[in-house]
Design a protein around this nucleic acid. Structure first.
Lengths: 147, 147
DNA sequence: ATTGCTTCCGTAGTGAGGTACGGGTTTAAG
DNA sequence: CTTAAACCCGTACCTCACTACGGAAGCAAT
Protein backbone atom coordinates (compact mmCIF):
# COMPACT_ATOMS: atom_id res chain seq x y z
CA UNK A 1 0.00 0.00 0.00
CA UNK A 2 1.50 3.20 -1.20
CA UNK A 3 1.16 5.81 1.45
CA UNK A 4 0.96 9.05 -0.49
CA UNK A 5 3.38 10.74 1.78
CA UNK A 6 2.48 14.06 3.25
CA UNK A 7 -0.54 14.98 1.23
CA UNK A 8 -1.74 18.36 2.37
CA UNK A 9 -4.57 20.78 1.83
CA UNK A 10 -3.71 24.33 0.96
CA UNK A 11 -4.21 25.38 4.57
CA UNK A 12 -1.80 22.81 5.92
CA UNK A 13 0.71 23.59 3.20
CA UNK A 14 0.56 27.27 3.98
CA UNK A 15 0.88 26.79 7.70
CA UNK A 16 3.79 24.38 7.28
CA UNK A 17 5.62 26.89 5.13
CA UNK A 18 4.72 29.74 7.42
CA UNK A 19 2.74 31.74 4.90
CA UNK A 20 -0.94 32.54 4.50
CA UNK A 21 -3.36 30.58 2.35
CA UNK A 22 -3.97 33.72 0.34
CA UNK A 23 -0.28 34.03 -0.29
CA UNK A 24 -0.12 30.55 -1.80
CA UNK A 25 -3.05 31.35 -4.02
CA UNK A 26 -1.37 34.59 -4.96
CA UNK A 27 1.81 32.76 -5.97
CA UNK A 28 -0.32 30.46 -8.10
CA UNK A 29 -1.88 33.42 -9.86
CA UNK A 30 1.58 34.85 -10.39
CA UNK A 31 2.62 31.59 -11.99
CA UNK A 32 5.21 30.77 -9.35
CA UNK A 33 3.37 27.64 -8.29
CA UNK A 34 1.07 25.35 -10.20
CA UNK A 35 -2.43 24.55 -9.06
CA UNK A 36 -2.81 20.79 -8.72
CA UNK A 37 -5.76 19.27 -10.53
CA UNK A 38 -8.63 18.87 -8.19
CA UNK A 39 -10.39 15.52 -7.84
CA UNK A 40 -13.95 15.99 -9.09
CA UNK A 41 -15.94 18.30 -6.89
CA UNK A 42 -13.28 18.27 -4.29
CA UNK A 43 -10.30 19.82 -2.69
CA UNK A 44 -6.83 20.08 -4.17
CA UNK A 45 -4.00 18.35 -2.45
CA UNK A 46 -0.41 19.40 -2.28
CA UNK A 47 2.73 17.39 -1.78
CA UNK A 48 6.28 17.96 -0.67
CA UNK A 49 7.26 19.44 -3.98
CA UNK A 50 4.80 22.24 -3.45
CA UNK A 51 6.30 22.76 -0.02
CA UNK A 52 9.82 22.81 -1.47
CA UNK A 53 8.70 25.38 -4.01
CA UNK A 54 7.38 27.57 -1.26
CA UNK A 55 10.67 27.27 0.59
CA UNK A 56 12.53 28.18 -2.58
CA UNK A 57 10.42 31.28 -3.00
CA UNK A 58 10.89 32.44 0.57
CA UNK A 59 14.64 31.79 0.51
CA UNK A 60 14.96 33.77 -2.70
CA UNK A 61 12.89 36.57 -1.27
CA UNK A 62 15.08 36.70 1.78
CA UNK A 63 18.01 37.30 -0.56
CA UNK A 64 16.20 40.26 -2.01
CA UNK A 65 14.82 38.79 -5.22
CA UNK A 66 11.47 40.13 -6.35
CA UNK A 67 8.71 37.74 -7.31
CA UNK A 68 9.39 38.45 -10.97
CA UNK A 69 13.05 37.60 -10.52
CA UNK A 70 12.09 34.47 -8.65
CA UNK A 71 10.00 33.46 -11.63
CA UNK A 72 13.11 33.78 -13.71
CA UNK A 73 15.17 31.78 -11.25
CA UNK A 74 12.57 29.05 -11.39
CA UNK A 75 13.11 28.57 -15.09
CA UNK A 76 16.72 27.74 -14.27
CA UNK A 77 15.71 25.03 -11.85
CA UNK A 78 17.25 22.15 -13.74
CA UNK A 79 20.71 23.03 -12.51
CA UNK A 80 22.00 23.28 -16.06
CA UNK A 81 21.92 27.07 -16.04
CA UNK A 82 24.34 27.77 -13.28
CA UNK A 83 25.93 30.63 -15.17
CA UNK A 84 22.66 32.45 -15.62
CA UNK A 85 21.78 31.88 -11.98
CA UNK A 86 25.15 33.21 -10.88
CA UNK A 87 24.68 36.23 -13.10
CA UNK A 88 21.38 37.02 -11.41
CA UNK A 89 23.00 36.50 -8.06
CA UNK A 90 25.80 38.88 -8.91
CA UNK A 91 23.41 41.57 -10.05
CA UNK A 92 21.50 41.24 -6.83
CA UNK A 93 24.71 41.37 -4.86
CA UNK A 94 25.64 44.60 -6.57
CA UNK A 95 22.30 46.15 -5.79
CA UNK A 96 22.49 45.01 -2.17
CA UNK A 97 25.91 46.59 -1.86
CA UNK A 98 24.63 49.84 -3.33
CA UNK A 99 21.82 49.88 -0.82
CA UNK A 100 24.22 49.25 2.03
CA UNK A 101 26.51 52.08 1.11
CA UNK A 102 23.58 54.43 0.61
CA UNK A 103 22.29 53.54 4.06
CA UNK A 104 25.73 54.00 5.52
CA UNK A 105 25.89 57.54 4.20
CA UNK A 106 22.54 58.19 5.79
CA UNK A 107 23.71 56.60 8.99
CA UNK A 108 26.71 58.92 9.17
CA UNK A 109 24.70 62.04 8.45
CA UNK A 110 21.94 61.17 10.88
CA UNK A 111 24.35 60.16 13.58
CA UNK A 112 26.17 63.44 13.31
CA UNK A 113 22.94 65.40 13.54
CA UNK A 114 21.73 63.50 16.56
CA UNK A 115 25.07 63.95 18.27
CA UNK A 116 24.93 67.67 17.72
CA UNK A 117 21.47 67.82 19.23
CA UNK A 118 22.58 65.87 22.26
CA UNK A 119 25.53 68.11 22.93
CA UNK A 120 23.48 70.69 24.78
CA UNK A 121 23.44 73.96 22.96
CA UNK A 122 22.40 77.25 24.42
CA UNK A 123 19.39 78.84 22.91
CA UNK A 124 16.28 78.13 20.94
CA UNK A 125 17.93 76.45 18.03
CA UNK A 126 17.99 72.89 16.83
CA UNK A 127 20.96 71.70 14.79
CA UNK A 128 18.96 68.87 13.28
CA UNK A 129 16.20 71.17 12.12
CA UNK A 130 18.71 73.71 10.93
CA UNK A 131 20.38 71.10 8.78
CA UNK A 132 17.09 69.98 7.33
CA UNK A 133 16.35 73.58 6.45
CA UNK A 134 19.74 74.28 4.93
CA UNK A 135 20.17 70.92 3.31
CA UNK A 136 21.79 67.99 5.02
CA UNK A 137 25.50 68.02 4.43
CA UNK A 138 25.69 64.79 2.58
CA UNK A 139 28.97 63.33 3.79
CA UNK A 140 30.18 62.48 0.32
CA UNK A 141 28.57 65.39 -1.52
CA UNK A 142 27.10 62.79 -3.73
CA UNK A 143 23.59 63.55 -4.91
CA UNK A 144 21.16 60.70 -4.59
CA UNK A 145 17.63 60.38 -5.77
CA UNK A 146 15.45 59.51 -2.85
CA UNK A 147 13.56 56.77 -4.59
CA UNK B 1 9.67 99.73 -4.66
CA UNK B 2 9.54 96.38 -3.04
CA UNK B 3 10.64 93.77 -5.45
CA UNK B 4 8.77 90.65 -4.38
CA UNK B 5 11.84 88.59 -4.73
CA UNK B 6 11.72 85.34 -6.58
CA UNK B 7 8.04 84.91 -7.10
CA UNK B 8 7.47 81.67 -8.91
CA UNK B 9 4.72 79.67 -10.48
CA UNK B 10 4.30 76.08 -9.44
CA UNK B 11 6.22 74.93 -12.50
CA UNK B 12 9.25 77.09 -11.77
CA UNK B 13 9.14 76.14 -8.12
CA UNK B 14 9.05 72.46 -8.96
CA UNK B 15 11.86 72.68 -11.48
CA UNK B 16 14.02 74.70 -9.12
CA UNK B 17 13.59 72.12 -6.41
CA UNK B 18 14.06 69.26 -8.82
CA UNK B 19 10.65 67.68 -8.37
CA UNK B 20 7.59 67.39 -10.57
CA UNK B 21 4.65 69.76 -10.50
CA UNK B 22 2.42 66.85 -9.58
CA UNK B 23 4.67 66.11 -6.66
CA UNK B 24 4.25 69.62 -5.26
CA UNK B 25 0.51 69.29 -5.60
CA UNK B 26 0.68 65.94 -3.94
CA UNK B 27 2.58 67.42 -0.98
CA UNK B 28 -0.11 70.08 -0.72
CA UNK B 29 -2.79 67.43 -0.62
CA UNK B 30 -0.80 65.62 2.06
CA UNK B 31 -0.70 68.81 4.09
CA UNK B 32 3.07 69.16 3.90
CA UNK B 33 2.85 72.42 2.00
CA UNK B 34 0.19 75.09 1.96
CA UNK B 35 -1.51 76.25 -1.19
CA UNK B 36 -1.05 79.98 -1.52
CA UNK B 37 -4.21 81.97 -2.10
CA UNK B 38 -4.71 82.56 -5.74
CA UNK B 39 -5.31 86.08 -7.01
CA UNK B 40 -8.83 86.15 -8.40
CA UNK B 41 -9.13 84.00 -11.43
CA UNK B 42 -5.45 83.52 -11.69
CA UNK B 43 -2.37 81.57 -10.94
CA UNK B 44 -0.85 80.94 -7.55
CA UNK B 45 2.58 82.20 -6.84
CA UNK B 46 5.20 80.71 -4.62
CA UNK B 47 8.09 82.29 -2.80
CA UNK B 48 11.36 81.22 -1.28
CA UNK B 49 9.66 79.83 1.78
CA UNK B 50 7.85 77.35 -0.40
CA UNK B 51 11.16 76.42 -1.95
CA UNK B 52 12.75 76.04 1.46
CA UNK B 53 9.91 73.79 2.50
CA UNK B 54 10.49 71.62 -0.52
CA UNK B 55 14.19 71.39 0.33
CA UNK B 56 13.32 70.45 3.88
CA UNK B 57 11.07 67.67 2.68
CA UNK B 58 13.66 66.26 0.28
CA UNK B 59 16.45 66.45 2.86
CA UNK B 60 14.28 64.63 5.38
CA UNK B 61 13.34 62.02 2.83
CA UNK B 62 16.95 61.48 2.02
CA UNK B 63 17.49 60.67 5.68
CA UNK B 64 14.80 58.03 5.45
CA UNK B 65 11.86 59.85 6.96
CA UNK B 66 8.45 59.00 5.52
CA UNK B 67 6.10 61.76 4.48
CA UNK B 68 4.06 61.16 7.63
CA UNK B 69 7.16 61.54 9.75
CA UNK B 70 8.11 64.65 7.85
CA UNK B 71 4.71 66.06 8.69
CA UNK B 72 5.54 65.48 12.32
CA UNK B 73 8.96 67.09 11.95
CA UNK B 74 7.32 70.10 10.41
CA UNK B 75 5.30 70.74 13.54
CA UNK B 76 8.61 71.09 15.39
CA UNK B 77 9.84 73.76 13.01
CA UNK B 78 10.08 76.53 15.55
CA UNK B 79 13.32 75.12 16.93
CA UNK B 80 11.89 74.96 20.43
CA UNK B 81 11.37 71.20 20.23
CA UNK B 82 14.88 70.03 19.75
CA UNK B 83 14.40 67.11 22.11
CA UNK B 84 11.49 65.76 20.15
CA UNK B 85 13.35 66.20 16.91
CA UNK B 86 16.37 64.42 18.29
CA UNK B 87 14.15 61.62 19.50
CA UNK B 88 12.75 61.15 16.01
CA UNK B 89 16.25 61.26 14.60
CA UNK B 90 17.41 58.59 17.02
CA UNK B 91 14.54 56.31 16.15
CA UNK B 92 15.33 56.71 12.49
CA UNK B 93 18.97 56.05 13.15
CA UNK B 94 18.09 52.82 14.90
CA UNK B 95 15.96 51.68 12.03
CA UNK B 96 18.63 52.58 9.49
CA UNK B 97 21.14 50.54 11.46
CA UNK B 98 18.77 47.59 11.55
CA UNK B 99 18.37 47.77 7.79
CA UNK B 100 22.10 47.92 7.30
CA UNK B 101 22.78 44.86 9.36
CA UNK B 102 19.98 42.96 7.65
CA UNK B 103 21.43 43.83 4.27
CA UNK B 104 24.88 42.84 5.46
CA UNK B 105 23.61 39.38 6.34
CA UNK B 106 22.16 39.11 2.89
CA UNK B 107 25.35 40.37 1.36
CA UNK B 108 27.37 37.67 3.11
CA UNK B 109 24.99 34.89 2.12
CA UNK B 110 24.71 36.00 -1.48
CA UNK B 111 28.40 36.56 -1.82
CA UNK B 112 29.12 33.08 -0.58
CA UNK B 113 26.66 31.57 -3.03
CA UNK B 114 28.03 33.47 -5.96
CA UNK B 115 31.58 32.51 -5.02
CA UNK B 116 30.62 28.85 -4.92
CA UNK B 117 29.09 29.13 -8.36
CA UNK B 118 32.17 30.77 -9.75
CA UNK B 119 34.50 28.16 -8.40
CA UNK B 120 33.96 25.77 -11.29
CA UNK B 121 32.31 22.60 -10.12
CA UNK B 122 32.13 19.40 -12.05
CA UNK B 123 28.70 18.26 -13.05
CA UNK B 124 25.20 19.49 -13.65
CA UNK B 125 24.65 21.08 -10.31
CA UNK B 126 24.32 24.65 -9.19
CA UNK B 127 25.28 25.55 -5.64
CA UNK B 128 23.15 28.68 -5.70
CA UNK B 129 20.06 26.81 -6.80
CA UNK B 130 20.78 24.01 -4.39
CA UNK B 131 20.89 26.48 -1.53
CA UNK B 132 17.65 28.06 -2.58
CA UNK B 133 16.08 24.63 -2.62
CA UNK B 134 17.44 23.56 0.73
CA UNK B 135 17.11 26.91 2.41
CA UNK B 136 19.81 29.50 2.37
CA UNK B 137 22.13 29.05 5.30
CA UNK B 138 21.40 32.30 6.96
CA UNK B 139 24.77 33.32 8.34
CA UNK B 140 23.40 34.07 11.77
CA UNK B 141 20.65 31.44 11.82
CA UNK B 142 18.36 34.27 12.60
CA UNK B 143 14.93 34.02 11.04
CA UNK B 144 13.72 37.17 9.41
CA UNK B 145 10.39 37.98 8.00
CA UNK B 146 10.86 39.03 4.42
CA UNK B 147 8.65 42.04 4.67
C1' DA C 1 -28.19 16.21 11.29
C1' DT C 2 -26.32 20.30 12.66
C1' DT C 3 -22.64 23.11 13.67
C1' DG C 4 -18.55 25.13 12.32
C1' DC C 5 -14.16 25.20 10.15
C1' DT C 6 -11.92 24.85 5.41
C1' DT C 7 -11.67 25.26 0.67
C1' DC C 8 -12.81 27.34 -3.72
C1' DC C 9 -13.02 31.32 -6.62
C1' DG C 10 -13.18 35.99 -8.27
C1' DT C 11 -12.73 40.58 -7.27
C1' DA C 12 -11.30 44.50 -4.63
C1' DG C 13 -8.61 46.99 -1.25
C1' DT C 14 -4.09 48.28 1.21
C1' DG C 15 0.13 51.45 1.76
C1' DA C 16 3.73 54.57 0.03
C1' DG C 17 4.85 57.88 -2.93
C1' DG C 18 3.94 59.42 -6.48
C1' DT C 19 2.55 59.80 -11.98
C1' DA C 20 -0.85 60.39 -15.66
C1' DC C 21 -5.03 62.10 -17.79
C1' DG C 22 -8.39 65.14 -19.38
C1' DG C 23 -10.88 69.18 -19.77
C1' DG C 24 -10.93 73.91 -18.86
C1' DT C 25 -8.58 78.67 -18.13
C1' DT C 26 -4.56 81.93 -18.44
C1' DT C 27 -0.78 84.03 -19.96
C1' DA C 28 3.24 84.91 -23.00
C1' DA C 29 5.07 85.01 -27.68
C1' DG C 30 4.78 85.99 -32.34
C1' DC D 1 -5.33 87.49 -32.98
C1' DT D 2 -3.94 83.11 -32.70
C1' DT D 3 -1.48 79.52 -30.95
C1' DA D 4 1.41 77.19 -27.72
C1' DA D 5 2.86 76.66 -23.03
C1' DA D 6 1.80 76.58 -18.45
C1' DC D 7 -1.54 76.38 -14.82
C1' DC D 8 -5.81 74.55 -12.24
C1' DC D 9 -8.38 70.71 -10.52
C1' DG D 10 -10.27 66.27 -9.64
C1' DT D 11 -9.80 61.64 -10.34
C1' DA D 12 -7.66 57.56 -11.82
C1' DC D 13 -3.80 54.73 -12.26
C1' DC D 14 0.98 52.75 -11.10
C1' DT D 15 4.22 49.19 -8.44
C1' DC D 16 4.81 45.43 -5.10
C1' DA D 17 3.40 41.88 -2.38
C1' DC D 18 -0.07 40.81 -0.28
C1' DT D 19 -4.67 40.74 2.40
C1' DA D 20 -9.59 40.91 2.73
C1' DC D 21 -14.30 39.91 1.39
C1' DG D 22 -18.23 37.25 0.16
C1' DG D 23 -20.87 33.46 -1.12
C1' DA D 24 -21.13 28.59 -2.21
C1' DA D 25 -19.84 24.08 -1.33
C1' DG D 26 -17.16 20.28 1.15
C1' DC D 27 -15.58 17.82 5.24
C1' DA D 28 -14.98 16.57 10.16
C1' DA D 29 -16.72 16.12 14.70
C1' DT D 30 -20.54 15.78 17.83
Amino acid sequence: MLKKRNVMTIGTLAKTAGVGVETVRYYQRRGLMSEPEKPYGGIRHYDEQALARLHFIRASQWLGFSLDEIGELLTLQDGAHCDEARELGEQKLTSVRRKISHLQQIERALNELVQKCSAGHGDVYCPLMASLNDGVEDATTDKHKVR
